[in-house]
Design a protein around this nucleic acid. Structure first.
Lengths: 230, 230
DNA sequence: CAGTGGCAATAGTAATGCTATCATTCTGGC
DNA sequence: GCCAGAATGATAGCATTACTATTGCCACTG
């Protein structure tokens, strides 16, 4: 039987993302861990399985045994992030009963600058976050969205948006666009950070790693938007 | 001297986008016009200059005489859209003095469903809009953003956001994030339409071509967000 | 010790993005 | 109506890409 290589909390993704579960071997962990680093360094387009195999001292064919395509690896990484974020949201809001406060904490978690976290021993979450910011929209702005959606590859993202949208609906039951507002916030939090870094004239937030203005901008936007009619 | 092939209002883009101005020849117009159609049909990744050349009855080498890469062609198309949108915004808000009404009209123009417009005789604006919705983020989520930004290839987008942000600042001078709010609205308007079509559980807006809920959602969001403190 | 799973090694495919060269056709100015 | 130069076509080629197929070794396990 295959065995997990490390201990501790582990996020297991649906087998649809991979051909062979990368958490069950050193090679698999290296593919994921180094894959994140390389996509961050060179960008998704320039990243290839050939380069990855070379870097981790294996062969292209072996990488293809874990992920059937480069695009599936990216899907896996993004789903890993969403699943991790769902977990963080749950932690952040557990034991809080006031609906507004629950929503505030959720938005805080969703839009805050990411720090190192040791949930995945072989992954630096800050790097994963940079990959999500720069590459996540490429997983759905893609000709195969429909098929991949049917296969359930976006479920974690949809669950997450739904969960936060439900918090909004508790606070403001008559607000008509809770899901659209949440997906707008999520995508905007990524985009504003990307703009701050690369196209600063498209934002007012600044680019320091510890910047909270994105969080402030979006939290304020949500609470004002869902407020009952003036 | 080269001459324009058609008459009427014409949006001329900065020569940095192309090697040879595609508006100065039938071939150039075909490259742009059919390029838009093919990117819409098959998606940017599957689109190639080889296929385009075949479709318009020319050769790959001739296409490369107009655009030095497929990526530059996409940049050209997106800039064409932004420039066209700037023009539409100007038309929509001229002769209106009330700042709130100017802002409302601008947001309306920016987020409304696109109809056929005969500004470009060889381009169906609805198709160009679909290309913008599905592909525009690929022009900046790209390893060469920094260089391309330095070359001024995003100027029309930045000018547009700045112009609308200035309208916000007139209405609400103390609001701290006008530019971020505008870029959020612009990107969200594209994304919500894309989600409505492909990932409907990530939005509440519907996908009919004549749907106004995106406009309503975003206009409402902006006016509530910039309202003076309650 | 036989068999299984995991991996490396090698080779190959069709397609991609892009360049180079040279011949042909078209155009405008005299 | 001719000629220079521009625009285009035709063809070839390049390195790289994403991905597949096959084979055989080695370690562990039953």
């Amino acid at each position: 039987m295959t065995q997990h290589v490390t201990d501790g909390v582990r996020l297991q993704l649906d087998p649809k993302f991979h051909l062979k579960d990368p958490t069950t071997s050193e090679l698999g962990l290296a593919i994921v861990g180094q894959g994140i680093l390389m996509i961050d360094e060179m960008g998704y387009e320039s990243f290839t399985f050939r380069k990855l195999a070379e870097r981790i001292g294996t062969t292209e064919a072996s990488v293809y045994r874990y992920f059937k395509s480069k695009h599936r690896l990216l899907l896996y990484l993004i789903a890993l992030y969403w699943t991790w974020m769902e977990y963080r949201l749950m932690l952040a809001t557990r034991n809080v009963v006031d609906p507004r406060e629950r929503l505030r904490l959720a938005l805080h978690e969703l839009t805050r600058p990411i720090e190192r976290d040791d949930l995945f021993p072989h992954v630096d979450e800050r790097v994963l976050y940079r990959v999500v910011v720069a590459e996540s929209s490429k997983v759905y702005l893609h000709r195969d969205v429909t098929d991949e959606n049917r296969d359930g590859l976006f479920l974690s993202y949809k669950r997450l948006c739904r969960a936060v949208a439900d918090l909004i609906s508790v606070v403001s039951p008559r607000y008509a666009y809770p899901v659209a507002l949440v997906s707008t916030v999520v995508e905007s939090s990524h985009l504003q950070r990307y703009f701050a870094e690369h196209l600063p004239r498209l934002t007012d937030v600044d680019r320091s790693r510890t910047d909270w203005s994105t969080t402030e901008f979006l939290t304020d936007m949500v609470f004002r938007t869902i407020a009952p009619d003036m």
